[in-house]
């Protein structure tokens, strides 16, 4: 497999790091601004897909499928475990909200500037879902890139 041309490499290098940062921002502020785990994970996976398409040879050394699938399974297990932790009241009960613990600050009603230390289990679930989605979509692109030979 030949590498891409210089134009593709330079433009993708300019895009990848801002896209990764924007995806992390979307995941971290999922309970304050539009967006959340799925959206941020899709943006991170897009950045990694650009990396994979532009730098196919180096990327297949850096991103390994076993590590990504292990991370995906761990994230899904964390998400399910976090939902089971609220089982004292009901499944998916938000047991951290308004409790004063981590992410447990109460929110005043109506428009407010937005406090990062709120919303209970929602930021943690955002993190887990973002990890799961980004790893899953990257595995799809990586598997399709590796399978089969080049064209005849």
């Amino acid at each position: 497999m030949n590498g891409s041309s210089v134009i593709v490499k330079v433009v993708s290098l300019a895009i990848i790091l801002p896209a990764l940062t924007f995806g992390l921002y979307i995941i971290a502020h999922g309970h304050l601004t539009p967006g959340g785990g799925f959206q941020g994970g899709a943006i991170i996976a897009s950045a990694l897909a650009i990396f994979l398409v532009a730098f196919a040879k180096q990327a297949s050394k850096t991103l390994r499928k076993n590590l990504l699938s292990a991370l995906e399974c761990l994230a899904l297990l964390g998400f399910i475990g976090l939902s089971f932790l609220g089982l004292g009241k009901s499944f998916f009960f938000n047991f951290l909200a308004n409790s004063g613990l981590i992410f447990g600050q109460a929110v005043p009603f109506g428009p407010n500037p937005g406090f990062i230390n709120t919303a209970g289990v929602i930021p943690l679930m955002n993190f887990f879902v973002g990890l799961e989605v980004s790893c899953a979509l990257t595995i799809i692109v990586l598997t399709m890139l590796k399978a089969g030979g080049d064209k005849k």
Binding site: F79, F92, N98, V107, P108, N112, A119, I122, V129, A136
Partner: peptide
């Protein structure tokens, strides 16, 4: 905002009120 303590009402619906749907979505992706 009072029950889920989240400014983003969409996020509080996706991860709190209707969390089972999100679990199904994650399972579909897996």
């Amino acid at each position: 905002q009072r029950e889920a303590a989240s400014n983003n009402v969409v996020a509080s619906i996706v991860f709190d009120y209707r969390g089972l749907d999100t679990l199904g979505e994650a399972t579909v992706l897996f």
